[in-house]
Amino acid sequence: MRILLIEDDSLIGDGIKTGLENFGFAVDWFRDGNEGHESLLQAQYDAVILDLGLPGRDGLSILKDWRSRGKTEPVLILTARGDVDERIAGLNSGADDYLGKPFSLKEVQARLNALIRRKSGVVVPEINYKGVTFNPQTRKTFYQGKEITLSPKETALLELLLLNRNKVLSKEMIENKIYAWDDEVSSNAVEVHIHHLRKKLHKDIVKTINKIGYIMED
């Protein structure tokens, strides 16, 4: 899952980025409103975390502009103001959810997962597929009832495939989704993760479509 984070406070931004990466998200973090605005227009994100008090460009105006350009990525806004008006203004401008400061990382993660689930149409919190059970909330994976330890990137890849069952995902697309801009990606990273998934779970869990990509078929 690739997340766009726009937050000007260095400590909060760093904490969210580090924390979410621990949960298996790929996070692109911008402190400046204009840069953040541009990056959503250029890259594919599964969700956006947007602080409202930003330098360069105000969060609400960024949000309005995205929506007017047909961008449908779920947006979670962060507000320091406790007042209802600002939250309503945020929701009216096209935000999908909001979090008032101070919040905890687990809350951010839970809200993001809920937003992404809602977007991909998967409502059940647990995803079951061919003996694999994945909980997006706890990030835990079970195979035939036994817990399997996966690295954050493997978990992210598994989740991506599970949420896009019966769709062929290209290698580039997968790279885009599970890596942030500042991650170093080796040319065969996706192949390595797929290999690990097959080894740890089941060798037929993911099908390779030659030269196109990978698919999980029901």
Partner: peptide, 14 residues
């Protein structure tokens, strides 16, 4: 106080 508190909370969790 909300912003510094958020920073503390988030960094503590990390």
């Amino acid at each position: 106080l909300r912003s510094p508190l958020t920073a503390l909370k988030v960094q503590l969790e990390v």
